[in-house]
Amino acid sequence: MLTRLANPARFMRISAVALPWCAWASCAVIAVGLYLALIAAPPDYQQGEAVRIMYVHVPAAWMALNIYLFVAVASAVALVWRHPLAEIAARSAAPIGAAFTFVCLASGSLWGRPMWGTWWVWDARLTSVLVLFFLYLGYIALVNGFDDPGRGGRVGSILALVGVVNLPIIKFSVDWWNTLHQPASVLRFGKPTIALSMLVPLLVMALGFMLLFAALLLVRMRTELNERKIRALRLNSAASVRPKRRSEHGVPARPAVLR
């Protein structure tokens, strides 16, 4: 499947069809999810209405982690099989992941305030998401840190792999650190056993976020491909302006099919 999608022209055709579907589907699913989360779901016996923040916080946390894994897999494909489209997928997905991570942190902080009286609670999971957020920022800064976008992409792929290897280590060390310094709050931040009426909105919102990710990814990848075409056209128009001194035995005009 992967190699079939490798051809950018085919990708553009497929994504042109898939994009509207993804976009409308994500809007519909998120709308349903919001209705379920804000209206249909019952308040929690302990936390009352505040539990509704969970329907945004938890799906965002899932997306934050899964998108980083997506970036890592795309980077591995880009490095191992020299797959140009995979590099563009990784580069386009990272900002979306960073946005979801930020949403997760902000909603977590807003949820922590009424529950534990502090805007930021150093809970193991929330702290790991914070470190993940810095991994995202590091990747995005590195990819855009070079003048030559190709160079940034390849180096970013290596960083994504280094990051994904470190993720479980960071998660383990933060949990270890958390057990050492038990934070002031007594109520464990863990999710209570979810009643079905609470689980459904959670899953619907998660599906909505996934479709939103897919739609955004396709838009950003198409933008990246267009920008590459623009750069190539500018490079060629600059090249054609350069005087060709040895035009008598001109090199055959076949485009060089390059690895």
Partner: peptide, 11 residues
Amino acid sequence: MGGYAVFVWPA
């Protein structure tokens, strides 16, 4: 929002 409006809506 049962008194939590200032947290749920901003979220």
